[in-house]
Amino acid sequence: MTDATLAAPAPEPVEVQAPRPRPSRAAALPLKWLGVAPFMLFALLFLIMPTIHIVLGAFQTPEGAFTLRNLQGLAVPQVVRPFMLSIKISVLTAGLGCLFGLILAAAVTKGGLPGWIRDAMLTFSGVASNFAGVPLAFAFIATLGRLGLVTVILKEVFGINLAATGFNLISFLGLTLTYLYFQIPLMILIITPALDGLKREWREAAEILGASGSQYWRMVALPVLWPSLLGTFALLFANSFGAVATAMALTGSSLSIVPIILFAQIRGDVLQDPHLGYAIAFGMIVITGIANLVYIVLRTRAEKWIK
């Protein structure tokens, strides 16, 4: 996953085994768990405890009493607008990521291209899907920013003035473009195995039964891929929704998406109310949580089908 994803669903709580009377078992148990202990500790310190802290905080007054006032406080334009903007940008980048990722992945898996192109593309995708935050923002500024390389080349060589067309990297469009840089590769990585799962026999059976290529895609391939596509869309949505570092680095605080106002809230320069901050974070947890849940459910459904 990319970027500092602020909220992810907490892992299943570890079942605590009842102590067994036999000493050998009791001695073996801790050793078995020793290997994963650092992970458990990490998850506890940086995922579970903060999440609990945020969720509790969202329902508490500064004095610690239970309240719904924080959540009601979300219903102000300064908060609703960023949420809407974030959802919009996430839907857009997830949708475009799915579309282009699918086309690219289909081209390398089913297009009869030499195998090395597929390998190169997957390797690149593995790197690019993790390329985010300050380096990514810097890369985009250095290419498409006001004095970026591509901007300059377009201007000097082709006579196209990017700024005059109204394009501004530090904008909704710019951020969408930048997010696509990791969304498309992420889609390629996730959808390629699903495309590999499309059996050659399905295509050939459809063809010998008289179907054209597009009939095959419409009647067989896309319906089979549908759960995977929707699931991946949900994952890309969550990925984009939680991405804060890229947005921060690219736009500073000029574009009000949720992670940025939350960041501002934590630093305390806008709304001056830490518990409202908890409520905003809680809202993010809910939305990314739902998206991740959709992903998991649809993925299991897709796996059952292709079995």
Binding site: E201, W202, E204, A205, L209
Partner: peptide, 30 residues
């Protein structure tokens, strides 16, 4: 001629039914 112009029936070794369609829909496909 392309395969879809030859009017030939083919049965593959395995796993060639369309998984998203019912048995009836599979048979009706052509």
């Amino acid at each position: 001629l392309r395969p879809n112009q030859r009017n030939i029936g083919m049965v593959f070794q395995a796993y060639a039914l369309f998984p998203n369609l019912t048995v009836g829909e599979n048979v009706a496909f052509g």
